[in-house]
Design a protein around this nucleic acid. Structure first.
Lengths: 199, 199
DNA sequence: GAATGATATGAGCATTCGCTCAGTTTTTAT
DNA sequence: ATAAAAACTGAGCGAATGCTCATATCATTC
């Protein structure tokens, strides 16, 4: 007769695989922020992660997929922060918190963030990167639909413009090594509020 | 006796070389805007320009130098436009014209302009690219030193912030295919003036 | 301890790419 | 016509890179 004991759940082995995947993504991040796209080869990433090149291709079908995974990881961090900003009672307060979240995110790893902003625009979007991009845009849309933040333009245009202002200013600041978050956030806020209210 | 007629100036032969150089730079531009960095190989550029790879390396010591030359060419176009903006009597009018110049420049070849913006930030700056970058920044500095455009921040910070706002908004607009220059310029102007006057 | 599946390895293949150089063609000068 | 200078050519070298695959190790189950 067959065994009737409950089958032990067979997940724990995958922890190792997850660790490998995480190590690869983080290695990709470090290589990118140190040498830019120039040093970003799959062989280099694998070596940096302390695994073989074969393992890399066991988890990522291509170099692009690895880059996408990194973009998704970073964007999810930002989304988590940004979502909590929406809890603020007023649109204005939420905007302030959103801007601070963006500044903090971008200045945490400035070189990496800037590079990924660009890659995101250039890379062929796969399902996952499209999802996080859309999720982030939804946050902007819901923010700029609040009564105290409406402007002349439709929310979609406002969202795109404001995101561009935020990204542009923070990227430039990161590029020239600005590190005082509170000052930068204040100037970005001035620009965004100015855009929203100026007529 | 030797010939005493004035030696004919021996420059005209260089016209051919200049044409080759111009063809190479333009070929680089076209390849970049069609396929991005991916298709941008020296062999491809030479073929597109209708010259041999050897000729390319007769005029440009490296692939990077070719890219730099393209950046310089494009930036000079923008600088020429931007300089005329300074002739306006008021700072405010000059700013409007500067913004329109930037919008026109960026939307003339949107994909190319966006790509070069990024490359400019990533490339090791040679003498020429540094020069045009500095020249463009001087235009901003002199603009934001005008009495009717002063703000809380020092002119240098204002210049950097405003340039970032302009570039960021226009790049994003170009990326999503926006083509109506007057609308875009108006929104950028709102953002910049808002930034300058908001408190 | 034997069998099975999951995970890891790294030599090396195929391709691409930046660049060189020995030689040819074109232009200019006399 | 001739020679020198300027400009151009393109086969191909060496290095790097994305990725495969045959093999090896480890974990789990019975």
């Amino acid at each position: 007769m067959t065994d009737h004991r409950p089958r032990p759940r067979k997940q724990p082995i995958q922890e190792r695989a997850q660790a490998t995947v995480a190590a690869l993504v983080e290695a990709a991040a470090r290589i990118l922020e140190e040498n830019g796209r120039a040093g970003f080869s799959t062989n280099a990433v694998a070596e940096r992660a302390g695994v073989s090149i074969g393992s890399l291709y066991q988890y990522f079908p291509s170099k692009e997929a690895l880059l996408s995974a990194l973009i998704v990881r970073e964007t999810n961090l930002l989304i988590a922060e940004a979502k909590t900003a929406l809890d603020e009672p007023t649109g204005r307060a939420a905007l302030t918190r959103l801007i601070r979240a963006c500044v903090a995110h971008q200045l945490r790893r400035p070189a990496l963030a800037r590079l990924l902003d660009f890659e995101e625009a250039v890379l062929p979007r796969d399902i996952e990167t499209a999802r996080v991009a859309e999720e982030f845009r939804q946050i902007g849309l819901s923010l700029f639909s609040r009564p105290d933040l409406t402007s002349q333009e439709p929310p979609l245009v406002v969202t795109q413009d404001v995101m561009a202002i935020i990204k542009g200013m923070i990227d430039a600041a990161g590029e020239r090594g600005e590190t005082i978050q509170i000052d930068l956030a204040a100037r970005v806020e001035r620009a965004v509020l100015g855009y929203l209210t100026y007529s």
